[in-house]
Simulated assay, not measured.
Amino acid sequence: MEVVILRDARDVGRVAAGAIARLVRSTPDAVLGLATGSSPLPVYDELARLHAQEGLDFSRASGFALDEYVGLPEGHPQSYREVIRREFTDRVDIEPSRVHSPDGSAEDIEGACAAYEEAIAAAGGVDLQILGIGSDGHIGFNEPGSSLASRTRIKTLTEQTRRDNARFFPSIAEVPHHVVTQGVGTIMDARHVVLVATGARKAEAVHGLVEGPVTAMCVASVLQFHPHTTVIVDSAAASVLRLADYYRHVYENKPPWQGL
């Protein structure tokens, strides 16, 4: 696991997007894992800028979203399919039909989850998975206590997560109780995981992810077992890391050829 500590959210977005841009340039048909929430937004902003100003080409790439609410009507502005479309797909030249989301409105949720796993496998697996992290250490919507070997499935949100997400809805009463999410095992299958986090509210979760024990109570900590995870955070999110100075030293003295 590599930990990169930067000044602010804009720098986090720039560096994370740089890793994605290098992948897409070297592997035009790359499969991207797409996350929503606040933390990845600067990443999508920078990717849109690279497309508009430097011609970064996504036309052969494809994507799989991490999760989706259960029960929101098609086209609801806070469905994650719509968020991905608004923040990423519509801003670059990726073919919309090549960007897939879990089906939170399926009559057969279990069947839809199995089909989503099959679709990821048929695409050759995810080359680079973008992740955020919840204030309680969840990734995707794998809440504390989730199986660290889980696959795509339906989950019930904690009240903390519903409160955290209420800012996107008129009221907390309108935040769904259930989601379909890629499982922890699904996420761990990605060849490269890039997790971004910003703000002091994420500091304890980042500490648990990087320096805590591996435990289902901080699901993100399982990424300590992943062979290629890059954690990119701003100074506020890194504020309780015991080895923050060491992580800064490592990043500042990396060989130029190493990359992320």
Rank of each mutant, 00 (worst) to 15 (best):
D57Y: 11
L6E: 03
L6G: 05
E95M: 11
A21Q: 06
S79Y: 04
D90C: 13
G33R: 02
E2T: 09
S62K: 09
L66Q: 04
E46L: 05
L41C: 04
V43M: 07
E74C: 02
I94F: 01
H51L: 00
L41W: 09
R81I: 14
V15M: 09
L6F: 12
L72S: 01
S59P: 05
D67Y: 01
E68C: 13
R81H: 15
Y80N: 13
R49G: 05
E54S: 10
E54A: 13
G33S: 10
E74S: 07
G55I: 11
S62N: 07
S62R: 13
A19P: 08
V12M: 10
A21I: 14
Y80S: 08
G13N: 05
A61R: 08
E2N: 11
L72M: 03
A65C: 11
V31Y: 04
M1Q: 10
A35F: 12
R22T: 13
G71H: 10
L41P: 10
F64N: 00
A19M: 02
L34Q: 07
S39I: 09
E2D: 11
V83D: 13
V92Y: 06
H51K: 00
S62V: 00
D67A: 03
E74W: 07
L41Q: 15
D8H: 11
P77T: 15
E95L: 15
T36Q: 07
G55H: 09
R14V: 05
Y69I: 03
R22M: 12
L6I: 04
L47W: 02
D8P: 01
A21G: 01
A16E: 09
F88M: 07
R22Q: 11
V4A: 05
P42K: 09
M1W: 12
V99L: 05
P96R: 11
D45I: 00
Q78I: 01
S79D: 04
S59C: 00
A16Y: 11
G71R: 06
V12E: 15
G18I: 05
V92T: 12
G63N: 05
R85S: 15
P96C: 06
D11G: 08
P28G: 14
R86G: 04
P77H: 12
D90N: 14
Q78A: 01
L50M: 14
G37Y: 07
S59N: 02
S39N: 14
R81W: 15
G71A: 09
L34R: 06
A65H: 12
L72H: 04
D67K: 02
V83L: 15
R25E: 10
L72T: 03
G75H: 01
A61F: 09
S38I: 08
V70W: 14
I84G: 09
R60V: 01
E95V: 15
T36H: 05
A16G: 07
E74G: 04
A65L: 06
S59W: 00
L47A: 01
